[in-house]
């Protein structure tokens, strides 16, 4: 169970990107987060696994507080949170298998990571998950040789390798063609029920949100202005979220780089 309460994020002295956000996600539900570019969707997801530092508020995953964790504790918490990215964020020059096993980096030792000698159980799990999404035959192919949909499936498997307790997906379909993006959404939906995993999906495409999720959360200017079932997501709600914002539907969502820009420019990782 993921409980977010009073989450606020502001960059420097700018207006807050997120203001007093409350959200509780239970069990194996799939939640779509919709909103125009800059509404704070991406920031919200990144606050959960602390790629972005929340200004205030509380985030609890199965009872454990995530805000304020540091160093090894933060890394242990991140292991339990899988993330799927808009740009797939694969390491192009490594093989599919290495990319998939990267999901275990929080568990294995540095020596194992360098020599790629992962435990047998991890390799077993990797093959099972890759078979589940039909990419097992690519195991030793370089990640950049795959098509967009295949690359995103590698991204999904990498996140699942972490044995996560919650899965975050930041615009997972925005870089894909319509057909492939339907497939990825379907995959996320069925994985959520198979693994009884709560899934939070930032998504731009409202009709996909309505088709593949059981709950929609609408953000505008960092505030939650809709929370309900897809059936209740009427054109009024749509107007409230996107209304008056120019070309919100056509504009591609802000890439993560744009949000990072606000932070300290030389932030080391």
């Amino acid at each position: 169970m993921l409980e977010i309460s009073q989450l606020t994020k502001r960059y420097g002295q700018d207006d807050p990107v997120l203001t007093g956000l409350d959200l509780t996600v239970e069990g194996n539900s799939v939640v779509a987060i919709v909103g125009a570019s800059g509404a704070g969707k991406s920031t919200m997801l990144r606050c959960i696994n602390r790629l972005v530092e929340p200004t205030s508020g509380s985030i609890k995953l199965n009872g454990h507080e995530l805000v304020g964790l540091k160093g090894a504790e933060l890394r242990r918490a991140r292991r339990r949170i899988g993330m799927v990215f808009q740009g797939f964020n694969l390491i192009d020059r490594l093989s599919v298998m290495e990319n998939v096993l990267a999901g275990r980096l929080g568990y294995v030792s540095l020596f194992q990571a360098v020599t790629r000698r992962y435990p047998q159980a991890d390799i077993e799990r990797a093959f099972q998950l890759m078979e589940r999404v039909d990419i097992a035959h690519y195991a030793n192919k370089r990640a950049d040789e795959l098509s967009g949909g295949e690359r995103q499936r590698v991204g999904v498997v990498r996140a699942l390798m972490q044995e996560p307790e919650v899965l975050l997906a930041d615009e997972p379909t925005a870089s894909l063609d319509p057909r492939t993006s339907e497939q990825i959404m379907m995959l996320l939906q069925s994985l959520a029920s198979e693994l009884s995993l709560p899934v939070l999906i930032n998504i731009h495409n409202v009709s996909q949100a309505k088709t593949y999720t059981e709950r929609i959360v609408g953000l505008r200017h960092g505030k939650m202005i809709f929370d309900g079932r897809p059936a209740d997501f009427t054109s009024d709600a749509l107007d409230a979220i996107y209304g008056g914002i120019e070309a919100a539907q056509d504009e591609p969502p802000a890439p993560p780089a744009a949000t990072r820009k606000h932070e300290a420019p030389h932030e080391p990782f």
Partner: peptide, 16 residues
Amino acid sequence: RRPVEAMEATGASKAK
């Protein structure tokens, strides 16, 4: 930077 971000999200340490 994107793969770096993904590795951070898996809970990998800086050396990894």
